[in-house]
Design a binder for these strands. Sequence first.
DNA 1: CAGAAGAATGAGTGTACAGTCACTCACATG
DNA 2: CATGTGAGTGACTGTACACTCATTCTTCTG
Lengths: 196, 196
Amino acid sequence: MKSDRVLSTAEERRAKVVASAVAAFARGGLHAVTVADVAKHAGISPAYVLKLFTSKTQLFAAALDECYRRIGEAMERGAAQAEEETPEALLHTMGGAYAELIGERDLLMLQVHAQSAMAEPLIADAVRRGAAGITDYVAARSKASGRQVQEFMAFGQLCHLLTTIDAFGIDEPWAKLLTEGFRHSDPIEPPGGAPD
Amino acid sequence: MKSDRVLSTAEERRAKVVASAVAAFARGGLHAVTVADVAKHAGISPAYVLKLFTSKTQLFAAALDECYRRIGEAMERGAAQAEEETPEALLHTMGGAYAELIGERDLLMLQVHAQSAMAEPLIADAVRRGAAGITDYVAARSKASGRQVQEFMAFGQLCHLLTTIDAFGIDEPWAKLLTEGFRHSDPIEPPGGAPD
DNA sequence: CAGAAGAATGAGTGTACAGTCACTCACATG
DNA sequence: CATGTGAGTGACTGTACACTCATTCTTCTG
């Protein structure tokens, strides 16, 4: 099965580099992570990474697209698991699928760092596309009310904050209060869910 | 009234530099904004900025503390405006005060950038202190249920996202849906409010 | 097997920036 | 007015990093 080629095709490399970019940029964001970091993770030279993507910013944007693609997939999987087709049940399983997906923090942190890099038009566009895609899909698939979708997204954002500050590991009243009902290891989440 | 001194006291300078740091770092975050940018905004030399704060990271952390201080003030003002002492009324006016405060986007963007710079322990600590302070204050002052406080914070986070992607200026269904009820110019906000 | 097409790199280039330091100037005090 | 303290800076240093390019190595095709 496995080819004994030494070189990959450019397409294979691109895919591998994008995956590496997701992991690497999740660690520190656009400006704190270097092209060399991504290259190292992918096991190729920085020069070739730049040949594949022309600029660091484009690479980040590609990573972000991949991030939203995976989230979309997770949502579809989640929706498929719902036992009934009510908005509430669909939002619940979708939220659970999202929570599970971002238990591995990379996709979450990448979104956080993306919000901080909105000064780059390429990245701003990717974030907007991502938010639009998730919102549209959730709304269409669940047929929930606008208010419910809003709440779904809002709790997703709260989940991002709580994860970045590691509130789940803080034993103080405020942290307990905010994390109540999330505990994103078990896919139970508050009335609404936990996306974007 | 105004002294004709040429030099300021170090304390005055620190305050001015912190204010400049809030404004400057809001534009691009820890890594995208230079000490020289902050210095220019404050009208002094980069060298002296670093003498006052020893490192760029400490300066950012100081800006963040100032940010949370101003938010705390706004919350108190908001609470004072409530017409009755019910949790709902208090959350509503507090959310309105917060929304009004961050209409000028600096304080909001600074928080977003801070979340992206959590790799720096000094900044991580400041963010946690900020979140703790707001949560504790809101919970204590409003006497709202845990769930209500959670929702208050969640919608605050959603407001951050919507502002960074400029959803309020996008004329598409998903953007309309998510911004419904916010429109942070008029201080009307959805059941809950809009903080952290 | 010649040679074209593409994969991949090493070695550079230029620049931007955090942090340092020796120094100058302003101000208060006796 | 001598002197000490603290405000403020210019010039520098070292480094890190995005991006370029000439070149080498691999694979495919006829």
